[in-house]
């Protein structure tokens, strides 16, 4: 039973467009164990975010479905917390209030006020943010914002933690630091994590399995690589570990030999210097009316 804590079966999705519908994903099958750390890797635009959004319930799959602990996922909910690429903190709330909003909506009935206060503080200290509780997102650095975003999700005690390139917008040092924090937290709490990344080193360092996606349209899972490295892992020691390097090689080979991104064929970029993500396509659900022409009336 444990084997299929979270299960994607035959997941596919089509996006409506002006012309023919655009098929982004097809035949995605994946079983994830409780406590497992999964990385999704693949070229830009292949459909990683779409997979994550389907697990989160933010998108509905056109075929197939997602089952979490025996129940089908068909709407977003706090049991599948999402760490967004651009932190998605509410800029008008302080760090504390941002986490509080999540805690209140999850534990309104089960925790007392004092318990909630302790729980918020506890989660912020997990990500080492207890020194800036009353600052607004605009007053803290990018790495700190991302940490608050992670704390907000941890505080919801989700069944699955979904992370869409959580460290994509950060510099290498900050990123390494946050990777270490994340590893430590995951070791301690045993969260089930699905993380999207562009960074091969990051994927190998953090994951139990790396899911490599083929290029879109109609992307699916190309290979799955088990990373059999002992935990806790240490980045310095691993840098010289042949097993670590073998895993890296395998992912690189998949990305740059078997499934070269047609758009990026000219550029021979080493994986560790993967260029930053291309701008994401805005999700299509609930398009909003925008009478911009009369904005300044």
């Amino acid at each position: 039973m444990n084997k299929n804590y979270l299960e994607l079966s035959q997941v596919g999705i089509e996006f409506p467009t002006d012309g023919e519908p655009f098929r982004a994903l097809q035949n995605i099958n994946l079983s994830i164990q409780k406590g497992e750390f999964i990385s999704l890797i693949g070229h830009s635009g292949c459909g990683k975010s779409t997979v994550l959004n389907i697990i989160a319930g933010l998108y509905r799959a056109s075929e197939g479905g997602v089952i979490l602990e025996g129940r089908e996922v068909n709407e977003p909910g706090p049991d599948r917390a999402v760490v967004f690429q651009n932190h998605a903190l509410l800029p008008w709330l302080t760090v504390y209030e941002n986490v509080e909003l999540a805690v209140k909506s999850v534990f309104k009935k089960t925790k007392s006020k004092a318990e909630m206060r302790d729980w918020i503080a506890h989660n912020l200290s997990l990500v080492h943010m207890d020194h800036a509780l009353h600052k607004r997102p605009g007053e803290i650095s990018g790495g700190m914002k991302q940490r608050v975003g992670i704390a907000r999700c941890l505080a919801m005690q989700p069944k699955v933690l979904l992370m869409d390139e959580p460290f994509g917008a950060l510099d290498a040092l900050t990123r390494a630091h946050l990777q270490d924090s994340l590893m430590e937290i995951q070791n301690r709490l045993g969260n089930t994590v699905v993380m999207i990344t562009h960074d091969v080193d990051e994927a190998v360092l953090l994951s139990d399995r790396i899911v490599m996606m083929t290029n879109g349209p109609a992307a699916s899972i190309g290979e799955i690589l088990e990373i059999d490295l002992a935990r806790p892992r240490d980045r310095l020691a691993l840098a010289e570990d042949p097993a670590f390097n073998a895993c890296r090689q395998q992912v690189l080979r998949f990305l740059y030999e078997k499934h070269r991104n047609p758009a990026a064929q000219a550029a021979e970029v080493p994986a560790s210097e993967t260029p930053p993500t291309e701008p994401q396509v805005a999700p299509a659900s609930v398009p909003k009316a925008k009478p911009t022409s009369s904005a300044a009336a």
Binding site: V82, L101, S105, P283, P291, S294, A297
Partner: peptide
């Protein structure tokens, strides 16, 4: 009226997603 409509309609998508995940 017009400016409120524009302001409300241009809420950051991520924040809308946050509210959906939290089921506000």
């Amino acid at each position: 009226v017009v400016n409120t409509i524009v302001g409300v309609a241009s809420i950051n998508r991520d924040l809308i997603d946050v509210s959906r995940v939290l089921r506000l």
